[in-house]
């Protein structure tokens, strides 16, 4: 055992234990750590935004370099604070409208390109390929079988899942059948995603345990 002499490591370790104490039940140590975290992060972000955005991109260009155009974004930002004055609170809607407008304008064509057109192209694969069939016949293995059924499975999955999200008709008949297959694909996808998340959560725990056992207690390298 080689305990850390660093008081910051001790503080971090104790705060970790305070948060983990929630696993037993809610208690004052957890509450104290929670409030500290919330307050600390709010303060940290205020400083980060001031030094990385407001000061270099607004204060310096406007007041030190005389770039008057910066008044416009500056004013739009200040309008948000009008919410504190109920009589003129409506002014803040201008900023919100500007923000939403710019966001939508930037993202709609980009989303159409990245998420729809490219993905559509990726799905337009040959349903049946002689080449993968030959590979499977010559070398029947799990990998070659996967390659053989992978594309048809993907195409069926896309079409059936799309039909599940069709809201204009009752899910009966062919549409009902397709959407039921679609929900199976969705659930398999969710299962894969769930498995990945279990892995992620364990990784977070491993990271903390490594910190406690290595940096704090010094029982492992």
């Amino acid at each position: 055992m080689n305990l850390s002499p660093d008081p910051w490591v001790w503080l971090a370790a104790l705060l970790t234990l305070c948060i983990y104490s929630f696993l037993y039940k809610d208690n004052p140590f957890y509450k104290a750590a929670e409030h500290l975290f919330v307050g600390l992060s709010a303060g940290y972000f205020l400083v980060i935004y001031w030094y990385n955005a407001v000061y270099p991109d607004m204060v310096v260009p406007l007041f030190k370099q005389g770039k008057l155009l910066c008044i416009i974004p500056g004013l739009l930002g200040l309008f948000f604070f009008f919410r504190f004055i109920p009589k003129v609170g409506w002014v803040s809607r201008w900023s919100i409208a500007f923000y939403i407008g710019v966001g939508a304008g930037m993202s709609i064509p980009a989303t159409m390109q990245m998420r729809i057109l490219e993905q559509m192209k990726g799905t337009m694969q040959p349903f049946f390929s002689l080449e993968t069939w030959h590979v499977f016949v010559e070398n029947p293995s799990l990998a070659s079988f996967g390659a053989l059924i992978g594309i048809p499975l993907m195409i069926v999955g896309v079409m059936c899942t799309l039909s599940y999200f069709f809201f204009s008709r009752e899910h009966k008949g062919v549409l009902g059948g397709m959407s039921r297959i679609g929900i199976i694909f969705l659930m398999i996808g969710f299962g894969a995603s769930f498995g990945y998340t279990v892995m992620a959560r364990i990784s977070l725990l491993i990271g903390r345990v490594q910190f406690l056992m290595s940096d704090w207690l010094g029982v492992i390298d």
Partner: peptide, 10 residues
């Protein structure tokens, strides 16, 4: 469109 693309690609 996807269905058309799949059939043509096949």
């Amino acid at each position: 469109l996807v269905l058309t693309g799949v059939i043509l690609s096949t």
